[in-house]
Computed example of a mutant assay.
Amino acid sequence: MEILLVLSAFVVYAAPVVLLMSAFGLVAHTVRRLREGGRPRLASPKPFTHLAGITAGGSVLFLLYAQWTYASSFRPDNLCHFAVGGPTRLPDSESVIPLSVVCDGTEIVPIWVNPVFFGLISASLACLTGASLARRALARQAAAVSVSPVSASRS
């Protein structure tokens, strides 16, 4: 149980750091490209990895915000009382992913929360895929440049 608590505390503190570092890295990369004159070149994996960090950190922070706002478990006996009214009691059902709290058959978490969270996760995965493809394209370009016509004709 202590391991889970330490791991969750690490995620809570690491998410804003990852988000800010990725945002600053993306801004620095953009400024560097603009100072170079923005000449066309092969895709760099850096912007994709920075965006993946931003969306991953944002998804964790968004889930924490939604959990805190709609499913706070500090006083679970009051959660249904404040959301639905009526007597103080525990929710009928709860889950973290997808975020859900049901009291008296009424879902407390708004309908937009889970699609936003999973959209951020999907964007993060798409950015990581883009970074992988960009890195592969750079490797192919480097391999094609390293084989010169002179060395190819000798073999």
Rank of each mutant, 00 (worst) to 15 (best):
H29L: 04
N114L: 00
V84A: 09
A152Q: 13
A152L: 12
S122H: 03
F117Y: 15
I54H: 00
L4S: 14
S8P: 05
Q141R: 09
R136K: 06
V113A: 05
L90F: 14
V101A: 08
Y65R: 01
G53L: 04
N78I: 11
T55Y: 12
P110S: 09
G85R: 10
S44T: 03
A28F: 08
E2S: 11
H81W: 12
L61N: 02
L7Y: 13
A139C: 04
V101M: 01
G53I: 05
C80A: 08
V109A: 07
L63I: 01
S146I: 03
L120P: 05
L20K: 06
L19I: 08
G38Y: 07
P110A: 08
C103F: 10
G53H: 06
A139F: 04
D104W: 03
G85D: 13
E107A: 05
G85Q: 11
A15D: 10
G25N: 04
A142K: 08
W112Q: 12
V60L: 05
V145N: 09
P115L: 00
H81I: 02
E2Q: 12
R39P: 01
Y70R: 04
A23N: 05
Y70N: 03
M21Q: 11
Y65M: 14
L5P: 01
F82L: 13
G58R: 06
V12E: 14
A137P: 02
G85E: 13
E2N: 11
V18P: 01
A144L: 08
T55A: 07
F62K: 07
V96R: 11
A152G: 05
T106E: 15
A134L: 02
Y65G: 07
L133K: 12
L34W: 14
S44L: 05
V12I: 14
Q67D: 15
T49Y: 13
V147K: 11
G37H: 06
A9L: 14
C127F: 14
V150I: 12
T129N: 09
A143S: 00
S124F: 01
R140D: 10
D104G: 00
A83K: 05
C80Q: 06
P87H: 10
D104P: 00
L128F: 10
G57I: 03
P47M: 06
V18T: 13
R135I: 00
A14V: 12
R39H: 11
R41G: 05
F74C: 03
